[in-house]
Structures are given as structure tokens and as C-alpha cells.
């Protein structure tokens, strides 16, 4: 198919808007100092923490998000529309407000936080777990909304056939729904991981900022921007590189897997 030429003008504008800022970032980088800045212990710690927490958050989204998407798309519960709207909330909420919300729930004086401390002796704020929770909170909608859409588009015909073949609901979910959803799950997970990786506001509000424990790459980049802009740019480039790596390596394989 030949694309209408008119399409290329706004598309080019979009590319410029997306790519030029990154070019700007690169142009400000002192390439000779880059290796040194990127390999500083603080940067390496933050990178490793970012990878670990984002991966864990993505895993958490997978475990609870896929079932949620199926419930939203296939369930026949009352109040499902309200629930669907609620899932969108983290997308609309400024992340800092999301972090505050988590703090008021799971913080020391929050309802959930008191419960956790009384029952298990656990305190969440300022821990790596808090980072993961903040990332999960903001990233979950990216997985759930994409999957719900895919489920709706696919319809329930394969599931109906599986049921007539004797598969009970959980077997249908495990052997039909999930496998058919794999491409969408893959692309959803990439988005989720990318969002978790870039998460800043909710993390710094709920988890604070401490090297090795809660200081992820975006937090380090922001902190460095206060004093040493070169280092900040270098760390940001590290983040960009990591995101690009994940998106280009994982995404095409998952999406374009088999016809």
C-alpha cells in the first residue's frame, strides 16, 4: 500500500518532537567524560537498582495485571465500569500525588502501614519494596488497558470453544486466553517496564532517595541536575540507552513473533 504523502508532514513533526530533545541531550554531553561519568559507583548502583526494581514491578504487574485485564474484559460483575475508570487513575494522577496517596495508605501513619507494622513488623517507606510498589502503581495501567483492549478485540469465541471441549474456566484461562494474549502481554510488559524505569515522582515521594536502596536512575539524574549537570546528562543518557535496548530488543520479537 502506498501511504498518502500528506501523512509524512505531521509524522515528521512527531518524530522531531520525540527525537530532537534526545539529540539535544547528546549535544550537551562531553563525550570524553561520558565513560567516567556513566561508570561512577553512584551511576552503576542506580542503574542496577533501576533494573532490579523495574523488572520486579513488571513481574508484579504481570501476576496481578493479566487476571485484572481478563476480569475487566470478560467479567459480568456489577460496578465493572467504575472499576475500569479506577484502573486509569494512575495515568491521570500526577505521580507525586500518587506517591502521597501511597504514603497515606502504607506510610507509618497510614491505615495499611499501621496494619503491616502491627502484624508483620514491616515498614515500607524508604525501602526498595516501596520503590517497586510506586513503580507498579504507575505502570500497571499500561499493561491492563492494553490487554483489556486486546481481549475485547479478540472476542470470547476461542474460550467458548475450549469450554465446549470440556475445559474448566481456569484451564481455559491458562491454555487458551493467556497463550492467545501472549503478543499483547509482551508489548504490554515492554511498556510497563519502560514506564517503571522512568518513574520518578511517586518514587521520591513514597520511597525517598537513598543510594543503593531507593535511588533509581531518574532520581540520581534529578539529584545530579542540582549541582553537576554534565553528570546528570550522562545518567539520563544511560536511562535512554537502557530503555532503547529493552524496546528494540524485546518488542519486535514479541510482537512480530509468528503470523
Amino acid at each position: 500500500m502506498r501511504l498518502p504523502a500528506l501523512l509524512f508532514v505531521p509524522a515528521a513533526v512527531a518524530v522531531a518532537l520525540l527525537v530532537l530533545p534526545v539529540v539535544g541531550l547528546l549535544s550537551r554531553t562531553d563525550l570524553r567524560r561520558l565513560p567516567e561519568l556513566v561508570s561512577s559507583p553512584a551511576a552503576v548502583d542506580a542503574l542496577w537498582l533501576s533494573v532490579r526494581t523495574s523488572a520486579t514491578a513488571t513481574g508484579l504487574c504481570l501476576v496481578v495485571g493479566v487476571p485484572l485485564a481478563v476480569v475487566l474484559a470478560r467479567g459480568r460483575l456489577p460496578g465493572l465500569r467504575l472499576l475500569r475508570a479506577t484502573v486509569l487513575l494512575p495515568l491521570v494522577l500526577p505521580p507525586v500525588v500518587g506517591g502521597l496517596a501511597l504514603l497515606y495508605l502504607l506510610g507509618r501513619n497510614g491505615f495499611g502501614g499501621r496494619l503491616l507494622e502491627a502484624a508483620l513488623g514491616i515498614r515500607l517507606p524508604f525501602t526498595t519494596v516501596a520503590v517497586v510498589l510506586a513503580q507498579t502503581f504507575v505502570a500497571m495501567p499500561f499493561l491492563v488497558i492494553g490487554l483489556e483492549g486486546a481481549l475485547r478485540t479478540a472476542g470470547a469465541r476461542y474460550e467458548a470453544v475450549a469450554a465446549t471441549l470440556g475445559a474448566r474456566p481456569f484451564v481455559v484461562f491458562r491454555r487458551v486466553t493467556v497463550p492467545l494474549l501472549l503478543p499483547s502481554i509482551g508489548s504490554g510488559l515492554v511498556l510497563t517496564f519502560a514506564r517503571a524505569l522512568g518513574e520518578f515522582g511517586a518514587t521520591i515521594t513514597f520511597a525517598g532517595n537513598f543510594p543503593g536502596t531507593t535511588q533509581t536512575l531518574p532520581l540520581l539524574a534529578y539529584q545530579l541536575a542540582q549541582s553537576d549537570v554534565d553528570s546528570s546528562v550522562a545518567v539520563s543518557l544511560l536511562l535512554v540507552a537502557l530503555a532503547l535496548l529493552v524496546i528494540t530488543l524485546v518488542r519486535p520479537r514479541v510482537i512480530e513473533g509468528s503470523p
Binding site: 517507606p125 521520591i204 525517598g208 534529578y222 539529584q223
Partner: peptide, 20 residues
Amino acid sequence: HPVSQETAVTGVLSKVETGE
């Protein structure tokens, strides 16, 4: 031994204000 090294004074204040 701080549990968090805030990037702004407001971060320190809000964490004390909320009791965290």
C-alpha cells in the same frame, strides 16, 4: 544515617510533617 537523601528541602519537610 539518613534513610533518604532528599533532593529538595521540601522533601525533608514533607517527610517529617507526614510522620514518615
